[in-house]
Design a protein around this nucleic acid. Sequence first.
DNA 1: AAGTGGTCTAGACCACCGA
DNA 2: CGGTGGTCTAGACCACTTT
Lengths: 251, 251
Amino acid sequence: MGTTQLAAQEPKYWHLKTILNDALDSDFAVGEILPNERELAARFGVARATLRQALDQLELEGRLQRRRGVGTTVAGPRMGVPVARPEHCWPGSAPDAWRTVECAEAPAPAAVAEALGIAADEPVHTLRRLRMMHGQPVGTEILYIPGATVPGVPGFFAAGGRARAVLRELQSLELDGESRSVELGVAGAEDAKQLERLPGSPVLVVSTRYRSGGATAAVSVSTYRADTCRLTFDDSGSVDVSPYGSERQAS
Amino acid sequence: MGTTQLAAQEPKYWHLKTILNDALDSDFAVGEILPNERELAARFGVARATLRQALDQLELEGRLQRRRGVGTTVAGPRMGVPVARPEHCWPGSAPDAWRTVECAEAPAPAAVAEALGIAADEPVHTLRRLRMMHGQPVGTEILYIPGATVPGVPGFFAAGGRARAVLRELQSLELDGESRSVELGVAGAEDAKQLERLPGSPVLVVSTRYRSGGATAAVSVSTYRADTCRLTFDDSGSVDVSPYGSERQAS
DNA sequence: AAGTGGTCTAGACCACCGA
DNA sequence: CGGTGGTCTAGACCACTTT
């Protein structure tokens, strides 16, 4: 009867994940490229699908980065991305962090209209932005601004003109505070493209309501790459006790 | 030759997900149980694995809840879980929200020790807690408290005695502020059990550093169920513009 | 015992990237 | 073009819950 293991009912992919996780710490450097999936599967004596299940988990934890046509690389610790204060997220404060992609006037989604306290079909300024960090895209955002918040912006505009006018008005606005929430989501087709990920990639969705003069001045929905980002809400220094790494992000 | 669709290179599972998502809105009520995976796969003419890929995404978005041996049910909107203020997370403030599971003295992990400013092998009080909401477990936490923060707690204790002593000291502590970060993780074996999920389930990991008198008084690592929780950082009301639902959580 | 979701296999083809 | 990860199939068995 030999060595019939009473091992466990631990799934193979879970065990695999543990082994790979340790190997990443000891045998690989950040940015290094792993053997391809077919070879890894063969090496561990499992089907490719099982190996992929283990890699999926490690990618969800931010340990790996997979790129089609290229390979699987070892990821560095996640970037700390400040999201708590207007200095970081309100237009005009962070000079290079946010890049305006588009600005139009359109009816707000129902949930947004409710938060803004306006009619569901009332058009609002919608400002699409992309946030860069260390040369990489980390998040996209849609800012919804009711006309009442930016009274100085006239009705018609050429492309780009509206964006400048709205941004200028917002920068001089006095904010009283914000309310925020964070939840897990998946990237839609457009977000995925801007974030340089595949559709369906996990993202952290930050919903913010900006208050000014007792009313809701604007509402934003931001989606951050969950694989590379650690959202920080510090009022001074930065925490760094996460189990998923404790150093700076390498490029 | 007929209707050969030049449809798209949109993956089948993505299209399926869209169909199911719409069906959830129109044809199902919260808590209702879906047809089983084999039947759904047959109905849509795809392999079960493909159908499961679509369900995986919907589960990641919090639209579904799957329980082995039972079935797949339609999930309600996520619960808003306040995590920003000590009233909600610091011991003693929320009477029924947190339940202490265990309390021991042990060396802190390296990253925690560094954040606390102590030696890596110096023992600290570690307090394990479970957070309940609406009768459901929503998060687990480990609080690391250096001895210097609770000088009134003597050395040896019977089970449970230490917890009471530490908690009493913490409740009278004056806090200056906190630093927080949020990132995506996966539930470990123990966390999964307490959260009534399978290991590997996605969780939101909140790392907090509590400051008192210019020093770090304690550090906590909390893991919240990503499927049912929307973390809120409000300073007053609650935002509700998330794309993933806008009503209250049903049981 | 029956039915559910979870794991696993051994293939196949496709979309994308780089040389 | 060859090599990579992404998608998909048609099965099988397992772990769990309910009856």
